[in-house]
Computed example of a mutant assay.
Amino acid sequence: MRLRPIAALSAAAVSALLLAGCASGDTAAPEPSSTTPANLCDAAAASGAASDSVTVDGEIGSASEATFETPIDPTALEVSVVDEGDGEAVEAGQFISYAMTAYSGDTGEQLASVGYKPGELLPSQLSPETIQGQVFGCGNVGKRVVAVFPASETATSEVYVLDLLGTVPTAAWGEEQEPVEGAPEVTLADDGAPSITIPEGDAPTETEVSVLKQGDGYEIQKGDYALIQYTGVRWSNGETFDTTWEDGAPIAYPTTQYVPGFQKALEGQKVGSQVLVVIPPADGYGEGEINEEDLKGDTIVFVVDILGGQTAPATQ
């Protein structure tokens, strides 16, 4: 049985940076079409006879039980509101946490329920172009909807019950920790963007990880997706060579797709944490002469904010 890739959308990376093998690049946001809604409120799909016919039992924030006559197959996406929610209204550009239960439109069988336990879904950024934007619109935290997707060439019709659980900050929110003596100094701007000052003296010869803010969320495991913000500087001159903060776009990749030192900084850390990591060439981009073209030979320093985690698909 196949689910539509709504869950996978939350794990999609905003840009490709710091992948293993020193690959980097950017993935451009989709170009709005002439039919793209102007705002998040207008993006919300309309209700219809199919979505209105679904009965939902269960409390918001826990897996639902939906019943409906089968087969159910509208001609277009239909969304009915079960509960408007009483939290703050969400806005385009915000990251949200959400959960959902999916059912076969042919048989009524429950296919899956995800997002109600830590580590099952990454936060997703709302926009009029995304499925999340179309099902939640500019709704309130606590909103529950029924979304009925029509059949396609590759999938039968499907029914989703989705809960809008909350919004997620784009900077780490954990408890501040005492700085490690001799480590690079980190100062934060009002929006949480870090500046890194390299100390005097030689760079460490082994990777050093220290926690600047201690989160209490899901613990990132090897191979998990981690939604992160980061800034990276060279030890040799203190210059920033890469950062997600310039456009405020966190990224998400499996931990195993980063260089070894960066992987060590993520695995075992909890969502909400901010981590400082100093990575020598052996755990970074390799030994060699320091140069301006690439990071070979240089020790690199990152401050990483861990905003979300999603269990590796093989272990879900």
Rank of each mutant, 00 (worst) to 15 (best):
residue 233 V to T: 08
residue 31 E to P: 00
residue 280 P to M: 00
residue 129 E to G: 01
residue 157 S to V: 05
residue 17 L to C: 08
residue 210 S to H: 12
residue 41 C to R: 15
residue 300 I to R: 11
residue 121 L to Q: 10
residue 85 G to P: 10
residue 190 D to T: 11
residue 235 W to D: 06
residue 296 K to P: 00
residue 128 P to G: 09
residue 226 A to N: 10
residue 57 D to V: 09
residue 10 S to M: 02
residue 143 K to Y: 05
residue 180 V to G: 01
residue 280 P to G: 04
residue 154 T to C: 05
residue 184 P to C: 02
residue 77 L to R: 03
residue 157 S to I: 08
residue 35 T to Q: 11
residue 200 E to A: 15
residue 9 L to F: 08
residue 188 L to N: 03
residue 181 E to I: 02
residue 115 G to T: 04
residue 165 L to M: 13
residue 161 V to G: 04
residue 242 D to N: 13
residue 101 T to E: 02
residue 63 A to Q: 14
residue 227 L to A: 11
residue 211 V to R: 05
residue 259 V to I: 14
residue 30 P to Y: 14
residue 76 A to I: 07
residue 59 E to F: 03
residue 291 N to Y: 03
residue 134 Q to C: 05
residue 261 G to P: 08
residue 27 T to K: 12
residue 29 A to M: 12
residue 251 I to K: 10
residue 193 A to I: 09
residue 103 Y to P: 12
residue 290 I to L: 08
residue 174 G to L: 08
residue 282 A to E: 15
residue 272 G to N: 06
residue 41 C to N: 13
residue 12 A to Y: 08
residue 298 D to W: 05
residue 64 S to L: 02
residue 80 S to K: 03
residue 132 Q to L: 15
residue 272 G to H: 02
residue 297 G to Y: 09
residue 288 G to T: 06
residue 129 E to N: 01
